[in-house]
């Protein structure tokens, strides 16, 4: 009996033991499960966070200031404990590099160009940039010799026809405007690849130039 009972007892004991072990394992896994998937990955990711922080800083870091961003990005991971802080830490970092971006000259560039054609509110900006513009036009290396000369021929021809229109009423203003627009487009298309900034400025000044050409008084001043 005893052996059987013992066997039963031992069997039951093993069964209970297994049940207890299973319960413990389950409870442990459940207990870890609550923190595990989040805290675990977050805890492990402390390096990953650095990696993400590094990755987020990487695009800007190497381009702008790697030495500055690298230590800053490395600092946030230091408080590894709270994952929230780690998440928050990179966030403020990204806006920081984002601040200089708003000051991108690209956005301000078109703005200037657009304002040039607009009212005189931006008269100061174009006035300041005109000398530069002239220098750029003289020194731009985006045009070859023959192209420059061909463009000059076209400009001279257009000016001759505008003069004839103002002096003798030859031709139509609409046709001259079309030729002017086409000429500006040609210049822009020639410049846009190698000197896009200059192309943008010319585009911005197009209306102002045309106003001078179509006004007989202004054109006369220009001719003299």
């Amino acid at each position: 009996m005893k052996p059987e009972g013992a066997a039963l007892v031992t069997g039951a004991g093993r069964g209970r033991g297994l049940a207890i072990v299973m319960a413990l394992v389950l409870s442990l896994t459940l207990a870890c499960g609550e923190d595990g998937p989040r805290a675990g990955p977050r805890a492990e990711p402390s390096p990953p966070e650095e990696a993400t922080g590094g990755a987020s800083a990487a695009p800007d870091g190497p381009d702008s200031t790697p030495p500055d961003l690298a230590p800053e990005a490395a600092e946030p991971p230091a408080p590894v404990a709270p994952p929230d802080e780690l998440v928050k830490a990179p966030v403020p970092k990204t806006p920081a590099p984002a601040e200089p971006k708003p000051a991108t000259p690209e956005t301000s560039g078109p703005g200037e160009a657009g304002s040039e054609s607009g009212a005189g509110t931006a008269s100061a900006a174009p006035a300041l940039s005109l000398e530069e513009l002239e220098q750029e036009l003289r020194k731009t290396r985006a045009l070859g010799f023959l192209t420059r000369l061909a463009l000059k021929n076209d400009i001279d021809d257009l000016l001759d026809d505008v003069r004839a229109f103002h002096d003798n009423g030859d031709g139509q203003l609409e046709d001259l405007r079309e030729r002017f627009d086409l000429l500006v487009l040609k210049v822009m298309s020639l410049l846009q690849d190698d000197d896009p900034g200059l192309a943008r400025r010319i585009a911005g000044a197009r209306e102002a130039i045309w106003r001078l050409l179509e006004d007989p008084m202004e054109f006369a001043k220009l001719s003299t």
Binding site: L130, E131, E134, L137, R138, T140, I155, A208, R211
Partner: peptide, 13 residues
């Protein structure tokens, strides 16, 4: 300013 620009455009080439 515009006159300068035109002059630049005309003379630059």
């Amino acid at each position: 300013a515009t006159a300068l620009l035109i002059a630049a455009l005309l003379l630059a080439p």
